[in-house]
């Protein structure tokens, strides 16, 4: 079994109007090489589900988002995401703004093929009032408690980035937090994962604790080897957040997004992108973020 594929073939699976889930968290372990290819494609009208960082910002800046399902969009060390803010302030897309935990709950419901999962989270706030499609439900037990029924967030496609994978699709996350990538994959009809390195299966078990293999191969439809594919977000312990790049990216929300695109997105292939960022040696040397 060999699920290796290419960035181009993955993005060719994404069609207008699809619901796209993106793994990682803020400025950490985002599948940015896949996102850049998506930006180069004609795909539009996406519903995007994400613990948002520059993935969301760039999709907003390129006008690809019809609806955003989010709890936050942030570059972590730069708290506010300039491109997302600008598009949101122009009212350019619909939103389902929910608690971070509700987002996880919606993915988990979809992963388990349940219509919803109950929670208290969101009740008695404007999350409930601004999302009238999210209903409440009464506990059938003696307590009779009113709970919020977080609907399943069913994804057409999930995109994630990890440190290592084998060609069959087993995925290893060597950083400190696996986030919710496994749930994104399980909630999706098709899941594609880019990785720093495709390695033999035995390397996965010899190089990391067994607990670091977060996605088994049944969750994954395609594997793309994309070294530095999370840049400018981090992929600990391989490299940290490229704050210098994120500052330039943020500043481009003030009228120079076209220049940013020309330099980093539309200029060409991955090798050119890495060169434009000072090369692989520089990126490898970026220290892990300090929070």
């Amino acid at each position: 079994m060999d699920k290796r594929t290419s960035i181009g073939e993955v993005v060719a699976e994404i069609r207008d109007g699809m619901t796209l889930g993106i793994g990682g968290w803020g400025a950490r372990r985002k599948p940015m090489a896949l996102i850049r290819e998506l930006l180069r494609s004609p795909v539009k009208d996406l519903t995007v589900v994400s613990y948002g960082g520059p993935d969301v910002g760039m999709l907003c800046a390129t006008g690809k988002v019809r609806k955003l399902v989010f709890g936050f969009v942030s570059l972590d060390l730069i708290p506010l995401e300039a491109h997302f803010r600008a598009a949101r302030q122009r009212g350019e897309f619909e939103v389902m703004e929910i608690d971070e935990g509700m987002l996880q709950w919606g993915l988990r419901a979809a992963a388990m093929r349940m219509p919803f999962l109950p929670t208290r989270v969101g009740l008695a706030t404007d999350v409930q009032r601004s999302n009238p499609e999210i209903k409440t439900i009464q506990s059938p037990y003696e307590d009779g408690e009113t709970l919020l029924a977080m609907p399943a967030l069913e994804l057409d496609v999930a995109l994630c980035h990890v440190n290592q994978a084998d060609e069959r699709g087993n995925c290893q996350i060597l950083g400190p937090d696996p986030f919710f990538d496994d749930l994104f994959c399980r909630a999706a009809k098709q899941a594609f994962v880019s990785c720093e390195r495709v390695v033999p299966t035995e390397t996965l078990t010899s190089e990391g604790c067994i607990h670091s293999i977060h996605m088994d191969r049944s969750l994954v439809d395609g594997i793309v080897e994309a070294p530095f594919g999370a840049h400018p977000t981090s992929c600990a312990p391989d490299y940290g957040i490229d704050v210098e790049h994120l500052r330039e990216y943020s500043a481009s929300a003030k009228g120079s997004w076209d220049e940013y695109c020309a330099k980093y997105i539309t200029a060409g292939d991955d090798a050119g992108y890495l060169d434009a960022n000072g090369g692989t040696e520089r990126i490898s040397g970026i220290e892990p973020p300090i929070f």
């Binding site: 709890g71 949101r88 608690d99 989270v121």
Partner: peptide, 17 residues
């Protein structure tokens, strides 16, 4: 179409309840 978009609700609803 907010005058100023900030972070999003983050974990505030779940924390406080």
């Amino acid at each position: 179409s907010p005058k100023a978009m900030l972070l999003g609700v983050r974990g505030f609803p779940g924390n406080t309840i």
